[in-house]
């Protein structure tokens, strides 16, 4: 549903500052749909901890989509880069302590982030540089997110049945379930 509620004469706009405090942390959600090749960004949920975040993501984003895999990542664990930020030309030296990162890429404005793959890197900036080198041919309109692999909370594949199957037989959530005569036009 929607719509603009007009301003009341004389009412001043409520100016909204930057207030990012939320009692429950924000978690970014990624879903791999059935038949999909990769995890696709699916907005966020709020949750007090990882288990609740995973359950909330399932209850929110898999009501219709038949998912086969679900990830949640604490928003604060993600480092973000886009075309406006300068990046070092070269990667960090080999030999420093390195770990595994997951890279997510938005290939153009308006598109969703997609999981591109894993990389080994020294830190977040290094991970972004390496992700750019590994996965991109251009940078215009592109954005990159990286998160340490260990920050990703994934649904256990053994649990796929209980997490993803219960939505399969709820046909009433689909428009085709309803028989609407053609004469009344598209609905």
């Amino acid at each position: 549903m929607s719509y603009s509620v007009p301003k009341i004469a004389g009412e001043s706009d409520t100016i909204v500052g930057r207030t990012e405090d939320h009692l429950w942390a924000r978690w970014e959600v990624f879903v791999r749909p059935r038949g999909g090749v990769t995890h696709v960004y699916s907005e966020s949920v709020h949750a007090p901890d990882a288990e609740t975040a995973l359950l909330n993501a399932r209850d929110t984003y898999l009501r219709r989509v038949e998912g086969v895999s679900l990830w949640v990542i604490p928003s604060g664990a993600i480092s973000r880069w886009d075309e406006h930020q300068a990046l070092p030309e070269s990667r960090s030296e080999e030999g420093s302590a390195r770990r595994l990162w997951e890279a997510f890429i938005r290939h153009r404005r308006g598109a969703q982030f997609l999981h591109a793959g894993s990389i080994v890197a020294a830190d977040a900036v290094d991970a972004i540089v390496r992700a750019r080198d590994a996965f991109l041919t251009k940078t215009d309109g592109v954005a990159i997110w990286v998160a340490p692999s260990e920050a990703i909370v994934a649904a256990d594949p053994d649990e796929a049945e209980m997490l993803f199957e219960p939505f399969a037989d709820k046909g009433y959530r689909q428009a085709t379930y309803y028989d609407i005569p053609e004469e009344v036009g598209y609905m």
Binding site: D59, T60, R63, D169, K170
Partner: peptide, 18 residues
């Protein structure tokens, strides 16, 4: 208590109803 929980409870209720 939170929007996410409203979604969760509706899912559970729909399962039982089904």
């Amino acid at each position: 208590p939170e929007l996410e929980e409203d979604l969760a409870i509706a899912n559970i209720a729909l399962d039982h109803l089904g």
